[in-house]
């Protein structure tokens, strides 16, 4: 494991820790108001306060959980769907493959953001778990496409033919012969999905279609934007949440590079 991958895993572990303990170590309640209105970062308020005197540091800490939960739930759900569709399509071939590939390509080409905005704003209560489910429904297609291609290249290998000749059932060949060879692809697809889901969730919160009763980093940005934080020069209101998003995204991307380099040795760094 190289330095980049370790750095990525380290940052991810840090945010996971915050997601677990964030609401206990937060110095203030995220929605609690105080008399320090719109004050810049100080000893009492590390990331400053909002126009109603809420502590932004506490909001970021508490909001981490929402972000990580959606990332995890979507990652698991969408990866499951992509394995189901991608591996089945690649392994079976023929008409089933045509239909399933068509389905995943349709999902890839249709712009997901406006569609999810419509769905989320029509739902009567768009809470965290429901949003995670809706995002998963649009996030599986890329993974399915990559898995299909990999499965197709495995399908005619000797060890699969041997299993087939010895009369193994199709699902058993898929689970015990094909899937173990796809672990790297599945892992990188999982990480990619988590990035996509986190970005989408934050975006949806920012535009205000997700319930604002639970905190996440996007909610902070929504309030910053709707209170004209920019025009008032309150940079501390939107900088911390944005940096957290970028850090988490970078960490996940670094982990993905590690997986790619593991799977494709040509990409590893050449030592001069």
């Amino acid at each position: 494991m190289n330095f980049k991958t370790r750095l990525g895993l380290g940052i991810l572990a840090f945010f996971t820790l915050i997601a677990v303990v964030g609401s206990w170590i937060a110095p203030y309640g995220p929605s609690a108001m105080s008399d320090d209105l719109l004050s810049p970062p100080s000893g009492a308020h590390w990331f400053g306060t909002t126009t109603t005197g809420q502590d932004i540091f506490s909001q970021v800490l508490v909001g981490t959980r929402g972000v990580m939960v959606v990332g995890l739930v979507c990652g698991v759900l969408a990866t499951f769907l992509s394995i189901l569709v991608g591996v089945t399509a690649g392994f079976l071939g023929g008409a089933a493959d045509e239909a399933l590939s068509m389905l995943s390509n349709v999902f890839l080409v249709i712009p997901a953001l406006p569609l999810i905005i419509i769905v989320a704003s029509m739902l009567p209560s768009a809470d965290t778990v429901l949003i995670a489910a809706v995002i998963s429904l649009t996030a599986w297609a890329w993974g399915a496409r990559v898995l299909r291609a990999q499965t197709m290249s495995l399908r005619r290998r000797d060890f699969v033919e041997a299993a087939r000749a010895s009369g193994e059932r199709t699902w058993r060949i898929i689970v015990f012969e094909v899937l173990p060879n796809l672990v790297a692809v599945i892992a990188s697809g999982f990480v990619g999905t988590v990035i996509f889901a986190v970005m989408l969730q934050i975006t949806l919160s920012f535009v205000g279609v997700v319930s604002l009763s639970t905190w996440n980093w996007g909610t902070i940005l929504f309030w910053a934007q709707s209170n004209q934080a920019l025009g008032q020069g309150a940079w501390w209101w939107f900088v911390p949440a944005g940096l957290c998003i970028a850090l988490l995204g970078t960490a996940l991307a670094l982990i993905n590079f590690g997986i790619d380099e593991y799977a494709n040795p040509r990409l590893r760094k050449v030592r001069a």
Binding site: K4, I195, M199, I202, T203, F206, L221, Q225, L230, G231, G233, W235, F238, V239, G242, I245, A246, L247, L248, G249, T250, L252, A253, L254, F257
Partner: peptide, 25 residues
């Protein structure tokens, strides 16, 4: 790594920063 970091930033947040630096400050 630099471009990875930039692409991990949501588009809209980069826009907010751009406004705050080049239009407000």
């Amino acid at each position: 790594p630099v471009t990875t970091f930039l692409s991990s930033i949501p588009y809209f947040w980069l826009g907010l920063i751009a406004i705050s630096v080049f239009s407000v400050t």
